[in-house]
Write a protein that binds this DNA or RNA. Structure first.
Length: 279
DNA sequence: AAACATGGCAACCGCGACACC
DNA sequence: AGGTGTCGCGGTTGCCATGTT
């Protein structure tokens, strides 16, 4: 960054602003970075004539103004990816964000806190507890995958041309081991598979009926999705988990069923079928 | 219609790691 | 070697919009 080219000393003792950024400040920051590049944030803040800390400028740029920032709802694919990566890395938001192009660590962190932790709170269980993690892994993630497959299948019925691409996405995007995750978000956009603008966990707790409407059969899965299902099955089903035991020994499961219809017996049927299917 | 509760998100803060002098 | 500045990360706060009573 070429900040030394300017004499910024006269602006060194300005009173710093805090709080929400104004349009004028945004333009100043964008203009300055367009000309001089980013980095050296404290110098940048001074030289750009912004009465902000370098930290504040950096945050504003990275989380909001950067041209490649993806805004809008988190897609189903991204939700699944976040769950997968969080189960692996925990609260390593920046690391998780690296696998979701255009998404910031802040956005993912906010998503986790507002959506995921909310449900843990409702269930009166610790978000880090084994029970909650098991529920994510064996209930929510398979359900998410099912919905992704359903949306891909629905897309394929409306456009045969997109079938191949949809199959490609569903079979390639959810195998972390293959490092194909970076393609996920971009693919979801190109396919238009952001099927649920308000998608969150509650959606797929209680989505059995809607799934039935999509004619997705567990025992006769869409062949285009079979590969992905089996891959996921390998990751999430074959860990020696006994779903009947999980169901019977889960003290807060009753709460889930009783409150909000979060999920129901049909979901367990789904999971058991999936489990047997992959035995 | 108003008061209150909740959710979502942008922004801030503290801390540790790192680079440079 | 240690002091200083910068950067990046994760946790937290505060504000605004929306929903509920």
């Amino acid at each position: 960054m070429d900040v030394k080219a300017r004499d910024c000393s006269e602006e060194d003792h300005m009173e710093l602003r805090r709080g929400p950024w104004t349009l004028e400040e945004d333009f100043k920051l964008i203009d300055f970075i367009a000309t001089h590049g980013e980095g050296r944030w404290n110098s940048l803040a001074r030289c750009a004539g912004l009465k902000r800390t370098g930290k504040s400028c950096r945050l504003r740029w990275l989380n909001y103004l950067r041209p490649d920032v993806r805004r809008g709802n988190i897609t189903l694919q991204e939700q699944l990816l976040i769950l997968q990566l969080h189960s692996r890395w925990g609260n390593r938001w920046s690391k998780i964000a690296q696998h979701l192009p255009g998404r910031t660590d802040n956005e993912i962190k906010n998503y986790w806190r507002t959506r995921v932790q909310k449900h843990a709170k409702r269930l009166k269980c610790d978000v880090n507890s084994k029970q909650f993690k098991d529920t994510m892994r064996y209930l929510w993630m398979p359900r998410l995958l099912e919905r992704i497959q359903a949306s891909a299948a629905a897309a394929s019925t409306t456009s045969d041309d997109r079938l191949g691409a949809a199959a490609q996405v569903t079979s390639s995007s959810y195998t972390l081991e293959n490092s194909s995750t970076t393609a996920t978000a971009a693919s979801s956009d190109s396919l238009g598979t952001q099927v649920s603008p308000v998608s969150d966990f509650t959606d797929y707790y209680s989505s059995s009926s809607s799934n039935n409407n999509n004619n997705i059969s567990v025992n006769n899965p869409n062949p285009n999705c079979l590969e992905a299902t089996q891959e996921l099955s390998g990751n999430y089903y074959n860990h020696g988990t006994d779903f009947q035991s999980l169901e019977q020994n889960n003290p807060w499961l009753d709460t889930m069923v009783a409150s909000n219809n979060l999920f129901n017996a049909e979901d367990f049927y789904f999971l058991q079928q999936q489990f047997n299917f992959n035995m």
